[in-house]
Design a binder for these strands. Structure first.
Lengths: 341, 341
DNA sequence: ATTGGCACTCGCACGGAATGAGTGCCAGGC
DNA sequence: GCCTGGCACTCATTCCGTGCGAGTGCCAAT
């Protein structure tokens, strides 16, 4: 694929098809874009592009439609992520700055992303595994009932109820609180678990071990709960209505996938940091039913360390440059907010 | 509407239509249900029912379809909520008992409800306004940065970051913590706000007022945040796929409504306690676009005090008895769990 | 009041013809 | 050697017209 004009033709086809949602013919192409050549010439290029598998014709007398391979080339070589306008940047910043806590930040991001891209937006909550512990709070709700509150650097708060067999005095609790916080404050989750194990199973056996052990174990459980890494926020589902045609082939499987958070996270892939946006197009993924959907995702997290992913999911026929720009911008602002908090 | 058989005919029409999704004719009716009369007789009844506005014929040579009025009569007089089977009850209890915190409880309930009814399920988080305060925690994250954690009786946890101008010593914080908790522990939100106002604006002006004031104000803000009453969990959207016909008239408006949490909550209506399930059918609500959707909802909360609503949303052509039973059952178990916690 | 009979209505599925957008190829021009 | 105008061809889509059949409404009989 060397020919310069051919690439322009492919780009034009993708752009037109994304806009009109209809197979695009040679004549319409030269009209809408100033290609400076005749339809016949374009037809030759299209024949070549089809030969190489970048486009395909749904049937003989229709125009051409990009294939997954065509989109891939378009994304990889024919597009430069256009930066957001100043107004858009202000809008993003303003919208996210109003958030009061992590839940709020995440749900605002989701809404924002879906509105910017007019696609379904997915935002994963920051993973526990690489956060650090900010504080552990032990609250006595009733004589034999404790509430453990685990506050993490990302702003995530995990809580666990704990029933104990014996009454716990306020002094005991204060002692444990100090002990636990001394062990885990500011420490990364993985090491915090180690430290807690030491507390849970000390060398010497003495009387109040039971309590300390169950508290430590509950905390370890909360910290290593992989289910909670599956927490995600989804928004903009109504944008699916825009392509209510192809309901069975595109919308339905996507709706089903959106319910399966695990599948969704696998789709979005590994969190990639550093402003790199990954694009998965159609059948490139392992899920056959989702051969008509693409994913544009990236990682985010404080200090460019990717703690979670965020992105949009939509039909292969989507505005990739726009989506990529929006995803990148939102990830960037989100990271900045986590930095500050 | 006195005639006994006519009611049976209406019931049969509703049941058949819900099952087959197709207009039901007189002949099919007498076959499927043992009505003991001839099709002609049923036709007469149908004519009368149509006259009274309970059913309607999409066109001359098709069967009849219930109107909203017909569904209403069906729900009000022709159905008794059938209790869940023992197995179903066990499944519900087992599924919900595994939850570790409020978020988990709510999301499990949502999933459960959508699976039981095969509809879209909506669960509102317990409202703040009638909860009581269980504990307030003040955590110092950095010299001039505090984290306020507000733990409520329902298990809800609200957090707020607070920047202060001066450094706060651990002793000051401990003092404030004691003071605040003494004022609000176990107190209902409304009164807690009163108590905090007293702390925020005391009679005498002394030096550490600034800090106490900003903490108290942040807590008041968190407690009276009406946005957080709009927190809801939605699940089972993929069930919409089951009626992908009528996409534009039914699915699309519903998807849009699901994004608008405020609209959705208004739809579900006031939380009604005491096992009463309310049903809103089609155009009975104020939203014209939702003339094809029904809502089956009820309130839930500890001790039968309705703190929030939960329910399912679906096409007017839905299994009302089944949905009502499931909604009631889930609300009941959910209330019980909140009781315990 | 119920029933069997019967004529009637009308949506829908099927089939053939017309339509036209778009293509591939070829011969001529820059 | 690449580009272009011309031309024959293909084939999905659209539009009618027809026949079918489910279902109704009405009526006379029981």
């Amino acid at each position: 694929m060397q020919n310069e004009r051919r690439l322009s033709v492919l780009r034009a086809i993708v752009e037109d098809y994304v806009k009109t949602e209809e197979p695009v013919g040679s004549k319409a192409l030269v009209e809408r874009h100033g290609l400076g050549v005749s339809p016949a010439t374009v037809r030759n290029d299209m024949a070549a592009l089809e030969e190489e598998g970048y486009i395909t014709a749904p049937h003989t007398s229709a125009g051409r439609v990009p294939t997954d391979k065509g989109y891939r080339l378009f994304v990889d070589r024919l597009t430069t992520v256009k930066p957001m306008t100043a107004a858009e940047k202000r809008a993003i910043a303003g919208f996210l700055d109003g958030a009061v806590d992590l839940d709020d930040v995440v749900s605002r991001s989701t809404r924002l992303l879906s509105q910017l891209t007019r696609q379904v937006a997915v935002v994963q909550y920051p993973t526990l595994s690489r956060s650090t512990v900010r504080h552990v709070e032990l609250v006595s709700l009733a004589p034999t009932r404790l509430l453990l509150v685990l506050i993490l650097s990302t702003g995530r708060v995990e809580q666990r109820l704990l029933e104990v067999t014996e009454e716990v005095s306020e002094e005991t609790l204060a002692g444990l609180r100090t002990q636990v916080n001394a062990a885990v404050d500011g420490v990364i989750i993985g090491e915090a678990c180690q430290a807690l194990r030491a507390i849970a199973h000390p060398e010497a056996d003495d009387s109040r071990d039971d309590l300390a052990t169950s508290i430590a174990e509950a905390l370890i459980e909360a910290m290593s709960d992989h289910r909670s890494d599956e927490r995600i926020s989804i928004g903009g589902t109504s944008n699916l209505a825009r392509f209510g045609d192809s309901f069975d082939t595109a919308v339905r499987p996507l709706l089903e996938a959106l319910e399966e958070h695990v599948v969704l996270l696998k789709l979005m892939g590994e969190a990639t940091a550093g402003g790199l946006v990954t694009v998965r197009i159609g059948a490139e993924g392992p899920y056959q039913e989702l051969s008509q959907t693409s994913v544009v995702a990236t990682g985010y997290g404080p200090g460019d360390e990717a703690l979670a992913t965020l992105g949009v999911v939509g039909p292969t026929r989507m505005d990739y440059p726009g989506s990529m720009a929006a995803v990148r911008a939102v990830a960037r602002y989100l990271s900045r907010i986590l930095d500050e908090a």
